[in-house]
């Protein structure tokens, strides 16, 4: 039985939150759309004028923008499969019975990387990867590898970002998948284990169907977060050397905050937002087809 609640009451409960979120979430967005239709550079305010869709045309034909997008996609395509593979391995180990204390300790240590301030991860990366003073090069030396210039070389800097992304987000994937594994009804898992000795068959035919929602969640969130990725590469390399680690959010920050071209930055961010929404819709459609 549900009581009829007057409209006014509903509005009173929801109104403040909706108004606040509209103020900070939607109003700036509309302002960004408006600004994206202008030539608007903070250092040349006198030349400010309405230019229609010119900024969008420039962005869509701008090689730098698409290179940054490509770089962001490349990071996703390299890092996320590794994160899922390692994450699944860790989740399966933690899911096995026994070694209670060790497993609790490991699970707690997994919580640390993903809560770490992203800016600090970039700073840590700088300190640990330094060619001369860095501990990682020292460790590589122990196994006979020459010191690597991680931050100064374009390819290596990109690899360094991939490695730290993996460090920070593999634990997250592991914990999400572990949560997924715990949704498998124990009777079914037990029965399957009596039928076959092969862990792979159990994983493929019994556990995997229960993992799909978790995997989709990982995919959606890693996509959104990779498109957002700013703090870690910014503090580590400032997008450099050259533009080797200039991911899409770093590029937009540079155009808006260091070139002061806010009209262009607004157009870039609106296009990025459109791509984000498009991807989210594709995922949601795929997801619902899987589940229903």
């Amino acid at each position: 039985m549900t009581f009829r609640v007057p409209r006014r009451t509903i509005a009173a409960f929801l109104g403040p939150a909706v108004a606040a979120l509209a103020l900070v979430g939607i109003a700036p967005l509309l302002y960004a759309v408006w600004k994206s239709l202008h030539y608007f550079n903070l250092t040349k305010l006198a030349q400010q004028k309405f230019v229609g869709l010119d900024n969008y045309a420039s962005v869509l034909t701008d090689l730098v923008f698409w290179q940054a997008m490509g770089r962001t996609a490349l990071l996703f395509v390299i890092a996320v499969p590794i994160e899922v593979a390692f994450g699944l391995l860790i989740a399966l180990v933690l899911h096995r019975p026994g070694l209670g204390f060790w497993k609790t300790a490991t699970r707690l240590s997994l919580v640390l990387p993903m809560a770490t301030t992203y800016a600090v991860v970039g700073l840590l990366a700088q300190v640990m990867l330094n060619q001369k003073y860095g501990v990682i090069n020292q460790m590589l030396g122990w196994i006979g590898v020459d010191a690597i210039n991680f931050i100064g070389d374009p390819t290596n800097a990109f690899i360094a970002v991939v490695i730290w992304d993996i460090w920070q987000w593999t634990p997250f994937v592991a914990l999400v998948l572990l949560a997924g594994l715990s949704t498998v009804p124990p009777e079914i898992e037990e029965a399957a284990k009596l039928e076959t000795k092969s862990n792979r068959i159990v994983l493929r035919h019994v556990q995997l169907p229960f993992l799909i929602p978790s995997l989709v969640a990982v995919l959606i969130l890693r996509t959104a977060d990779t498109l957002k990725l700013f703090d870690m590469p910014f503090t580590m390399t400032r997008g450099g050397p050259g533009s080797a680690t200039e991911f899409i959010a770093v590029l937009i920050e540079r155009v808006g905050n260091r070139q002061f071209d806010i009209g262009m930055a607004a157009a870039q961010s609106i296009i990025m937002l459109a791509i984000t929404i498009l991807l989210a819709r594709v995922y949601i459609r795929l997801f619902y087809r899987e589940v229903r």
């Binding site: 900070v24 979430g25 967005l29 959104a224 700013f230 808006g256 806010i262 990025m272 937002l273 989210a280």
Partner: peptide, 28 residues
């Protein structure tokens, strides 16, 4: 409470998770 547009409102609240701060930073 039951009311019209509840699902949409719900969805809008979550969508904010996906908006990159860089989109809002300059207008703000």
């Amino acid at each position: 409470f039951e009311f019209r547009g509840k699902q949409d409102l719900w969805f809008w609240f979550i969508t904010n998770r996906f908006v990159s701060p860089v989109v809002l930073a300059f207008p703000v």
